[in-house]
Design a protein around this nucleic acid. Structure first.
Lengths: 235, 235
DNA sequence: CTCTGCTATATTGTATACAATCTCTGAGAG
DNA sequence: CTCTCAGAGATTGTATACAATATAGCAGAG
C-alpha cells in the first residue's frame, strides 16, 4: 500500500521486518503469545502475510511455533545466551579473520566512522536515554556488519544476522555503563588496527575477546539483578 | 529420527520435509523454477502450505524467492561450495571440540556403529548403486549429527543442519570412490579416538581436515569433469 | 469438594477466490 | 530487420471462508 519507501517488497516481507523489529525491541516480550489475528490487525494486513512472517521468524529462531497452538516470542534462558555468545565468538572471530584479507578502504572508513561515533557519544548528551541506546546499537551494528560484509561469504553474513537477533532487552543495559563502553571502544580500535595490517589471527583473537567480554558483562549483570523472575523465565 | 518427534502433524510441515528431500535428492534440479501450483498438485495440497514450506526453505537457503517472480531451486556455484565447506569446517570443527567434553557412551557407540557400517560397506554388494549411496549418506549423516547433538548447543545443531543441506548431486560421486572412502573412514576413527579421550583440540583438527578433504575431492572432480555446463551453472 | 467429561469459544491450518504483477508474443512503426 | 509496446495468459501475493484443533468453563458424578 505505501509506495513511498519503494525498496518495495511484498507486504509479507514488510510484516517480517516489522515483526523482527518489534520482537528485538521488546514490544512483544519473550514468552508472549503471538496471535495471528492480533498481529494482522496491528500491522493492517490479513493473516496470510503474518503467517509467512512467523514461519520465517521461526526458522530464524526468533519465535517458536507449536503446531495447532500458535507462535510464541522466543524467550532466552541464561544457557541460551551462553550458547549464542559462544557461536558469535566463533563466527565473528572467523569473519574478522577472513575480513583481514579482503577488506576495502571504504569498508575500513565506514567502520572507523562508527567507532568514532561510539567514542564521541560518551561525551554527548541525548534528549532521551532511549535515543542514546538506539544510536549506540546502530553504530555498533554497522561496525560488526561491515566486517561480515567484508568476508564476502554470504552464508556467513546470513548466519551472523540470525545469531545476533536477540531482543534488545537482553543487551541494552550494556550500553548504559561508561566503563564497559570504553573497553569496547578500545577493542574496536584494536580490531581495526589488525584489519588494517591484514593480521587475521590478531583480528580473530581480539574479536573473540570483545564478544566474550560482552557476554561476561551481560551475565554478571544478570547475576547482580539476581531476581530470577524478570526476563529469564524458562519457557 | 521418527515418530518420537512428530512435530510434522501439520501438512505444511510435511510439505516442507518433502520439498527438502526432493531438493536434496535432486528431483528438482538446481536452477529449476518451483511453481507453487505444480508443487501443490505434486504433493496433493493447496498452495497455502506450499508457500509456507517455500518461505521456510528460503530461510534455510535451499531455494531463492524473487518477489512476484517465484521460487527457484538454489544452484550452487563453485564459490558457494567453497563458502559452505569453509563454514562447515568451522562449525563442525567447533562441534567436535565441544563434543569431546560432553559426549556420552551411548553417543560414542552410535558413532562407532555408523563408522563400522561405512567400513563394511566397502566389501558389501548392493542391488543398485543408488541404494548404496543412500546407505552411505545416511550412515555418514548419523556420524556427523551425533557429534552436533553431543554439543548440547541447539543453535549449533540448527546451523549445521542448514549448512549441510546441499543437493546430493554435488556430493554423491564422492561415495563412488573406494580410495577416498577409506581415507574418510580413517578420519572417522581418528575423530572417534579423540572424542573418547576427551581431546577437543585433536577432534577439532581432525574434523577440519576431514571436511577439507571432502571439499578438495569435490572440487577436483569438478575440475576433472571440466565441462562447464552441467551442474554448475551460475544462476 | 474434587475430578471427569462435555460443550462453547478461540485460534490455528488449509483451501479457494480474487487482485497484482510479470512474462511472452506479436503487430506496427521506424 | 529491429525495436517498442499493448494485451493475453501465467503466476504470485493477499484476503477471506471454512475446517480442524486446542482451550476454558461448567455440569454432574463420586
Amino acid at each position: 500500500m505505501n509506495k513511498l519507501y519503494t525498496t518495495d517488497e511484498t507486504s509479507a516481507d514488510q510484516v517480517y521486518q516489522q515483526l523482527r523489529r518489534l520482537l528485538i525491541e521488546g514490544y512483544y516480550p519473550p514468552g508472549s503469545r503471538l496471535v495471528e489475528e492480533r498481529l494482522a490487525q496491528d500491522l493492517g494486513v490479513s493473516r496470510t502475510p503474518v503467517r509467512q512472517a512467523l514461519v520465517r521468524a521461526a526458522a530464524e529462531g526468533l519465535v517458536q511455533i507449536f503446531p495447532n497452538r500458535g507462535a510464541v516470542a522466543r524467550s532466552f534462558t541464561v544457557d541460551d545466551l551462553i550458547e549464542i555468545y559462544d557461536l558469535r565468538a566463533l563466527l565473528e572471530g572467523h569473519a574478522a579473520f577472513l575480513a583481514a584479507q579482503r577488506i576495502t578502504a571504504e569498508q575500513i572508513a565506514r567502520m572507523e566512522a562508527a567507532a568514532t561515533a561510539l567514542e564521541q557519544s560518551l561525551v554527548m548528551t541525548f534528549e532521551r536515554r532511549q535515543d542514546e541506546v538506539h544510536f549506540l546499537v546502530e553504530q555498533n551494528a554497522i561496525f560488526h556488519q561491515t566486517i561480515a560484509e567484508a568476508t564476502g561469504n554470504r552464508r556467513l553474513i546470513t548466519m551472523l544476522n540470525q545469531i545476533v537477533a536477540v531482543p534488545l532487552q537482553f543487551r541494552s543495559f550494556y550500553w548504559y555503563q561508561p566503563e564497559q563502553r570504553q573497553i569496547s571502544n578500545f577493542f574496536h580500535r584494536t580490531i581495526l588496527n589488525a584489519l588494517r595490517l591484514g593480521d587475521g589471527e590478531r583480528a580473530r583473537a581480539m574479536m573473540r575477546e570483545h564478544i566474550f567480554y560482552g557476554r561476561d558483562v551481560l551475565l554478571q549483570s544478570r547475576n547482580a539483578e539476581d531476581s530470577s523472575a524478570s526476563a529469564f523465565r524458562e519457557e
